[in-house]
Design a protein around this nucleic acid. Structure first.
Lengths: 370, 370
DNA sequence: TTTAGCACTCATCCAAAAAGAGTGCTAAAC
DNA sequence: GTTTAGCACTCTTTTTGGATGAGTGCTAAA
């Protein structure tokens, strides 16, 4: 009896009305919208009950009701209907993914932008979780007597390179030797295992007084560190101003500054980075950060391979359209996962660079380079 | 007589007051601030004259005066004093540049962010002008029988790579052959010169039926295209809300959306990309874009080497503090130029990765990779 | 349990009045 | 000829107070 069907219906009308209009709704309007047979007075009684349960709130004595965060939570958990994406929407995502999403950096960037454009909310995008990645191979390419290119490949099949210049000369055989040494002693090691001691020992053994090994290995460490480190990127903060709840400049500004800083999105993405779930909704006060206390965050994660994960998310007013946003977000995340697992890229009519021969072959694994 | 010293002084007070307070100023207040010996009535006469000259404006009959765009222009051209950066400010720029600005992509990103933080205005950052860059060298590194790494080096000493997978097997000698062919026929060519015909011919000559050449060359084309293409990045749009002129949400939102889109900053950067000047101030209506008509833009360019240029810029209300902004911008731009020309990085106490041996050597030229 | 009725509370809107800032002009002073 | 004091006038901003109306909570009857 705590939650009769009627109450659920009422709650739902309140939530959906508020999502749509951002205005409180009164008993009379509810009676009409809900298609219930009872009168507004009855609804008033129910409203009072729902308020007592903590699911509704009243901005002031003589206003209608709006959902409380708990109200949203119940709505999201039990009442919300799955939103189906329209064909246009899926098309849009697909085409956007086909163009220019090749490198990891760009994926983070573009995915965020795309999400923001599609939801009309600020969006963010991040990657993380590469701490157990190792270097699987080194190649040193001689350029001239005082510079060479170091190419390293990681266990998750990414390749990065760097042009290294030396103050003194080096010969091809020396470089070869160095290359072999690197491949025998410095592969299969994670960032943590590439200790300075190891380097010193190897340096000595090689009889190299140039610190050449350190130079290359330190580059390798940079690469691993970069993969490890999560890059967060925010886009579309301007969308905030569209929502009536951010007509208050002070409020809008505060949130914007927070979003443009380096917020701890990675924290809230944790359960997803650990693979415990792949979408997550944080409603208002459920957020840890003070700045997000009356804001909701919707997150979806995707797989980059080798234990690495990416997360895309949306930030908006608590009354955001959860059904629609989650639908878009998880569709996009799914597609990103597919893109990273299948080298052939998404499942769409490809448009290769027009001038190309029908390449018999393939595409790269993910991205390249530092 | 059109512009007596007194008038200049008055104009200057009006501009500087407006920059500081965003409020019109009246004759009496000017008399005090300017330290002139005359009375407010005299000033009123002068004000009327300055208004007739089009240098001042009056929001409404009984308000004080504010500068017109022409007024700003005159101020910027003749009256503005060079602003000296404080030690703290230069320090801040220096330290920010030392950390994590290694790769080009990141430079664009970080420089924009830094500018925005230092000026408290939205900032943008872009690079352009690599159309005559060529590929100077190819290396193909065998990974296994159906994949290899393609490494290309460009004429401006950047190196990019890509892991290429094949549906069918390939042998080391085949790869070698391919490598040689690429280096003999496809180096020293700009993007425009890498025509599909050339590829077809080479493909035939090589007897390769795999389209392998296309695969690698098309990657090279991507690389050149990427360098050619200007990447624009905007940061700190939220700062707009701090300015009183953007307390109007509608206005703020419009400008923000414009800035977050892909605005033609590259157009206004043109004179700078062509090396005709290295800072530029566009005041209000001097801007081409409708959205920027009552906004000012300050730009500074820096050299990336090999004809490539980068531009950083700031967008703000017409009353922005030009002296301070230009000072910061050009200091940063200078430092960026230095950083790109000298491999050793800026002129500051370096902190290398702590665990490293005192590397006898150097650092990379600029950045790496795609 | 539902409903009609009614007094009551607040936010919002609007108009009118009051306050204040700054001007432009005139006539006198330097 | 330039500067200045004086003053009426204009226009914005702020304040005030009443009217309006939406929506409630409660009571008493169905």
């Amino acid at each position: 009896m705590a939650m009769s069907e009627r109450r659920k219906k009422i709650l739902r009308v309140v939530v959906e009305n508020y999502i749509e209009t951002a205005e409180p709704i009164g008993s009379k309007a509810i009676a009409e919208k809900a298609g219930l047979t009872c009168s507004s007075a009855t609804i008033r009684n129910e409203l009072a009950a729902l308020e007592k349960l903590g699911l509704l709130e009243q901005p002031h004595t003589s206003a209608g009701r709006i959902p409380s965060p708990q109200g949203y939570r119940l709505y999201v958990n039990e009442l919300m209907e799955q939103h189906k994406l329209s064909i246009q929407e899926t098309e849009r995502i697909n085409t956007a993914m086909n163009s220019k999403m090749r490198e990891l950096d760009r994926v983070i960037d573009q995915a965020g932008k795309l999400v923001s454009q599609m939801t009309n909310y600020p969006a963010f995008s991040l990657t993380a979780g590469g701490s157990q990645i190792t270097i699987s191979r080194y190649d040193l390419l001689m350029v001239n007597s005082n510079s060479f290119i170091a190419v390293v490949m990681t266990s998750n099949d990414r390749v990065k390179n760097k042009l290294i210049r030396l103050p003194s000369d080096i010969t091809e055989p020396q470089l070869q030797l160095l290359n072999t040494l690197l491949n025998t002693s410095f592969t299969g090691k994670s960032l943590a295992e590439l200790s300075p001691e190891l380097m010193r020992v190897a340096e000595k053994a090689a009889g190299s007084s140039y610190g050449l090994i350190s130079l290359v290995v330190s580059f390798a460490m940079d690469v691993l560190e970069d993969m490890n480190q999560s890059i967060v990127r925010t886009s579309g903060v301007g969308h905030l101003l569209e929502a009536p709840e951010y007509q208050d400049i002070g409020k809008a500004h505060k949130l914007m500054t927070y979003l443009s800083g380096e917020p701890e999105f990675s924290n809230m993405s944790l359960p997803m980075l650990q693979g415990q779930q792949d979408t997550r909704i944080l409603i208002g006060p459920e957020n840890v950060a003070e700045e997000l206390k009356d804001t909701s965050v919707v997150l979806a994660s995707y797989d980059i391979g080798e234990g690495m994960k990416g997360v895309i998310g949306v930030v908006g007013p608590t009354r955001m359209d959860y059904a629609r946003v989650t639908a878009k977000l998880s569709y996009l995340a799914d597609n990103l996962s597919k893109m990273f697992s299948a080298p052939q890229q998404p499942a769409l009519p490809q448009q290769q660079r027009p001038a190309l021969n029908p390449a018999p072959a393939s595409e790269q694994s993910g991205d390249e380079d530092v």
